[in-house]
Amino acid sequence: MHIFKSTKLVIPLLFWVAIMQTAYADDRLVKIRVDGLACSYCAYGIEKKLMKLPGVKHVDIDLPNGLVIVTGSDKLKLDPEQLRKLFEDAGFTFRAIVRDDGRKAQ
């Protein structure tokens, strides 16, 4: 009887995990190195600007490491010159789009 009750909880949880994994499977992840991000207010301003770009779904800011992490659809296209202007207009310095291994993207 005890096992049956546990199974009732586990199966919906596994179903939810499978759905969430499928929903984000096609997302692109882009990391952007930026200088000048110092507080959550700065982060919020950048998040608002990036969320207006086509294909952007979510933005995370890693303040200590100066990284902006953008999650987007397969339609997400972030041009370095576009990003340079966006960050400079907001008072920050765009450095590079970074690969997963931390090196500058070509």
Results as ranks from 00 to 15, higher is better:
73 S>M: 11
44 Y>L: 12
58 H>G: 03
23 A>D: 12
25 A>M: 02
77 K>Q: 12
65 N>M: 13
77 K>N: 06
45 G>K: 09
35 D>R: 07
80 P>R: 02
9 L>W: 14
36 G>Y: 07
16 W>G: 13
40 S>N: 14
71 T>R: 15
97 I>L: 03
40 S>V: 12
17 V>L: 15
86 L>Y: 08
96 A>C: 05
14 L>N: 10
64 P>H: 08
84 R>K: 14
71 T>A: 13
16 W>C: 14
90 A>C: 07
62 D>G: 05
86 L>T: 04
36 G>R: 00
88 E>C: 02
21 Q>D: 13
39 C>A: 00
58 H>A: 01
56 V>K: 01
16 W>H: 10
77 K>S: 10
63 L>E: 06
94 F>N: 02
61 I>E: 03
37 L>M: 13
30 V>N: 02
90 A>D: 01
58 H>V: 02
83 L>I: 08
89 D>Y: 05
53 L>I: 03
9 L>M: 12
52 K>N: 12
54 P>I: 00
75 K>F: 11
76 L>M: 09
51 M>K: 10
27 D>S: 10
74 D>F: 05
25 A>C: 06
78 L>I: 07
71 T>P: 04
23 A>M: 15
24 Y>E: 14
18 A>E: 03
33 R>M: 06
55 G>Y: 00
52 K>L: 10
86 L>Q: 01
59 V>R: 02
60 D>W: 10
96 A>K: 02
97 I>Q: 06
18 A>D: 02
22 T>R: 14
12 P>W: 08
74 D>L: 10
92 F>K: 00
55 G>W: 09
57 K>H: 13
13 L>I: 13
10 V>C: 04
42 C>N: 09
30 V>A: 03
16 W>I: 15
11 I>W: 11
74 D>W: 00
67 L>W: 01
88 E>W: 10
52 K>C: 05
87 F>I: 00
23 A>S: 14
76 L>C: 03
24 Y>F: 15
7 T>Y: 14
77 K>V: 11
55 G>S: 02
44 Y>D: 11
